[in-house]
Design a protein around this nucleic acid. Structure first.
Lengths: 247, 247
DNA sequence: CACGATTATATGTCTAGACATATAAGTCAA
DNA sequence: TTGACTTATATGTCTAGACATATAATCGTG
């Protein structure tokens, strides 16, 4: 989650290379609707002929479009415009400590509660696991320049991350510890809005009923759940910025 | 904006190809902190030697890492791990009509207000332009199965999109019209939380003081502002889901 | 020492091939 | 008709080169 930036206008377009031109051409046709969802894009050898270039060049353009989820590539069948014409944006959600330090503010951390237990059924549901192993449940607060920044409520699956049992979360925030000790392969964020309840309001030093941005994050390492975390941010002072570059 | 999905566990890892293995190796070293921010990654020719492959293969791995903002590549200098170790997620924000239809619900649209005017200073500030051209200001509401889904407050810059002057926004929502008529090259979303004011509460049929998720979106076409839009969603029933695949 | 010109080098892009592999489509038999 | 087998084909990955280009580092000069 980055701070609310002053919106800067995008830089002027530079002279594009061939593969970028191919990519932009196709992208434009898709985004204008000239090639609707489901439309089959010309085959690579057709694009080779049209642009007088080698296959690797069109392949690079198409690969990037596929990576951006604008098209879907199927062997033997061809490449197709993907279904809903949605915009996709790269959303950066930083480690909170790194985020605050990057802002040039002093980072503060308070551990509210940390306990190790056998996973309850609620824990298992939250982590999306069926077996009842050990978990660590953590509640803590992050602050910037001694002003509450976010409250965190986290569950760590010890069967995936046994090393976490020996970590000292009174000193280091669990998010930072995990980021430096556990490689993750997949993550999911869910963003919603709520009004602060009694406990959250007190921890964030805001009024009960004030808006809060809530981020739920689930992290996996090769099909095993690593951690589930819920963060409450004061909604009027904090914002998520996501920017997409289409050039 | 996609609906809250039932979190599915990621699929098991498949046998990776060489460039994917290189990418994963480097990614793991970065995410575990073995290669901290600022660390210089081995040069392409060193990786060629280590993995016994051609330069194009390591180049493909490094290019994808650069595209994912995990590393920064500088000519003559090398490739470096980027500074804050943040996670990046692909956030999909669909056209609202497409989103609702994709859910299998019936889409409803009500134009609340639509007026064409010379840009006021507030309009210019919002669009980030300095010259005072014509704009269209639109207020409208989207509903799913006749339940209010989101309210929209939009400004379109007619000097960038003159065709919009002839569009009929009483029939078609402006977001869909723009998506099909104007190619965009860059966009920015800002997500925040507020509590519903009188007008928003009435339009969304929720209580005053209920939480709302707010999305501000700015769209550009090659350095020219296309549109600025603010969407209010009922915060407790709607959520944004962003998922990142790191494999 | 400061500053401009030169050079070395790592990345950026591209080529013209190659073989691998998934799969749509066609073929044939039960 | 249906299922199993075969085949054609588009993409996936890779090679061993090439030239272009930005720039860090070096060298010279005032």
């Amino acid at each position: 989650m980055s701070l609310a930036s002053d919106r800067a206008k995008p830089r002027a377009a530079e002279k594009p290379t061939l593969y970028k031109r191919i990519r932009l051409d196709i992208e434009t046709r898709i985004l204008t609707g000239e090639w609707p969802p489901g439309h089959r894009i010309p085959f690579e050898h057709q694009l080779m002929a049209r642009y007088r270039c080698s296959r690797m060049t069109v392949n690079k353009a198409l690969s990037e479009l596929a990576q951006a989820d604008l098209i879907e590539r199927r062997r033997r069948a061809g490449s197709f415009v993907r279904r809903p014409q949605h915009m996709s944006a790269v959303l950066k959600i930083a480690d909170i400590r790194a985020e605050i330090t990057a802002l040039g503010r002093s980072y503060g951390y308070q551990l509210i509660d940390c306990r190790r237990r056998t996973a309850t059924s609620a824990d298992r549901a939250r982590l999306g696991v069926s077996t009842a192993g050990k978990v660590i449940a953590i509640a803590c607060r992050h602050s910037a320049d001694d002003v509450p920044f976010a409250v965190e409520d986290r569950l760590i699956d010890l069967s995936t991350v046994p090393e976490a049992a020996t970590a000292d979360f009174s000193r280091e925030p669990p998010g930072s510890w995990l980021l430096h000790h556990v490689p993750w392969t997949e993550a999911e964020h869910t963003i919603s809005a709520v009004v602060a309840d009694d406990r959250t309001a007190k921890a964030l030093d805001i009024a009960i009923g004030a808006p809060c941005l809530v981020i739920d994050r689930y992290t996996w390492r090769s099909a095993r759940t690593v951690t589930a975390v819920r963060l409450h941010y004061p909604g009027e002072t904090h914002r998520l910025v996501a920017r997409f570059k289409g050039g």
